[in-house]
Amino acid sequence: MQYKLVINGKTLKGETTTKAVDAETAEKAFKQYANDNGVDGVWTYDDATKTFTVTE
């Protein structure tokens, strides 16, 4: 399945996608991506759209 990440950071904004077997695996990949880019915020997930959002 394909999952999307929407980033609403202080210095980084945008979107990225990943393919993963489940939401938990996608979340780990997205959190690593956010961490690598210095984004630390509040996470939400919408199962209907398979979209994670992180807001600083």
Rank of each mutant, 00 (worst) to 15 (best):
33 Y>E: 03
13 K>T: 14
10 K>L: 15
7 I>Y: 08
12 L>Y: 15
33 Y>P: 00
51 T>R: 03
38 G>E: 09
55 T>R: 05
26 A>P: 01
36 D>C: 06
47 D>Y: 08
45 Y>G: 00
47 D>K: 13
51 T>V: 08
42 V>S: 09
46 D>Y: 04
11 T>Y: 14
33 Y>M: 05
28 K>H: 12
18 T>E: 05
26 A>I: 02
44 T>I: 09
37 N>F: 13
25 T>E: 13
8 N>L: 12
6 V>T: 06
46 D>F: 04
3 Y>I: 02
7 I>W: 10
50 K>A: 08
11 T>M: 09
19 K>P: 05
7 I>G: 01
9 G>P: 03
45 Y>V: 02
52 F>D: 00
11 T>Q: 13
11 T>G: 07
46 D>M: 04
18 T>Y: 13
44 T>E: 10
15 E>M: 05
45 Y>Q: 01
26 A>K: 00
31 K>Y: 06
49 T>D: 05
36 D>N: 10
45 Y>R: 02
2 Q>V: 13
56 E>H: 06
2 Q>H: 09
14 G>M: 14
14 G>N: 09
4 K>V: 12
1 M>I: 14
10 K>V: 14
50 K>L: 10
2 Q>Y: 10
13 K>V: 08
7 I>A: 03
54 V>K: 01
40 D>I: 14
29 A>E: 12
38 G>P: 02
26 A>Y: 01
39 V>N: 02
21 V>L: 12
29 A>K: 08
51 T>Y: 03
40 D>K: 13
44 T>H: 10
17 T>L: 09
29 A>G: 05
23 A>I: 12
27 E>T: 04
30 F>N: 00
20 A>C: 05
6 V>A: 03
53 T>W: 08
11 T>E: 09
55 T>L: 06
40 D>T: 13
11 T>I: 11
12 L>D: 07
19 K>G: 07
30 F>A: 02
29 A>V: 15
39 V>F: 11
23 A>D: 05
54 V>A: 03
17 T>I: 10
47 D>L: 07
2 Q>G: 06
40 D>Y: 12
37 N>L: 13
1 M>N: 13
9 G>D: 03
25 T>M: 12
32 Q>A: 11
30 F>L: 06
2 Q>N: 10
50 K>M: 11
48 A>R: 10
41 G>I: 01
9 G>H: 11
44 T>K: 06
53 T>Q: 05
29 A>T: 14
56 E>Q: 07
24 E>N: 10
30 F>C: 02
1 M>E: 14
8 N>Q: 11
9 G>V: 15
36 D>M: 10
49 T>R: 07
20 A>P: 02
6 V>Q: 08
9 G>W: 07
22 D>K: 04
16 T>M: 15
31 K>V: 08
31 K>I: 09
35 N>T: 13
25 T>A: 13
38 G>S: 08
6 V>C: 05
48 A>Y: 08
14 G>C: 11
1 M>C: 08
44 T>S: 13
15 E>F: 07
50 K>Q: 09
12 L>T: 10
18 T>Q: 07
43 W>V: 02
27 E>K: 12
49 T>N: 09
42 V>D: 11
3 Y>R: 00
39 V>D: 01
14 G>V: 15
43 W>K: 00
31 K>D: 02
27 E>I: 08
32 Q>V: 10
27 E>F: 14
14 G>R: 12
44 T>W: 09
43 W>S: 01
18 T>N: 04
26 A>N: 00
32 Q>E: 13
39 V>M: 06
8 N>I: 15
23 A>Q: 11
19 K>D: 12
39 V>P: 02
28 K>E: 07
3 Y>S: 01
2 Q>P: 10
7 I>C: 04
42 V>M: 11
37 N>T: 07
3 Y>W: 07
41 G>T: 02
42 V>L: 08
45 Y>E: 00
43 W>D: 00
35 N>D: 13
55 T>P: 00
4 K>I: 13
25 T>S: 13
40 D>P: 04
55 T>N: 08
40 D>S: 12
48 A>C: 07
4 K>H: 10
55 T>I: 08
51 T>M: 04
24 E>D: 12
24 E>H: 12
7 I>P: 01
51 T>F: 02
39 V>G: 02
40 D>G: 09
31 K>T: 05
17 T>M: 12
30 F>R: 00
44 T>L: 07
29 A>P: 01
14 G>I: 15
21 V>N: 13
34 A>V: 10
33 Y>C: 03
48 A>E: 13
56 E>F: 06
13 K>Q: 14
15 E>K: 06
33 Y>K: 03
52 F>H: 02
56 E>I: 09
15 E>I: 06
15 E>H: 07
7 I>E: 01
24 E>T: 12
39 V>R: 02
52 F>G: 00
16 T>G: 04
6 V>D: 04
56 E>M: 08
55 T>M: 05
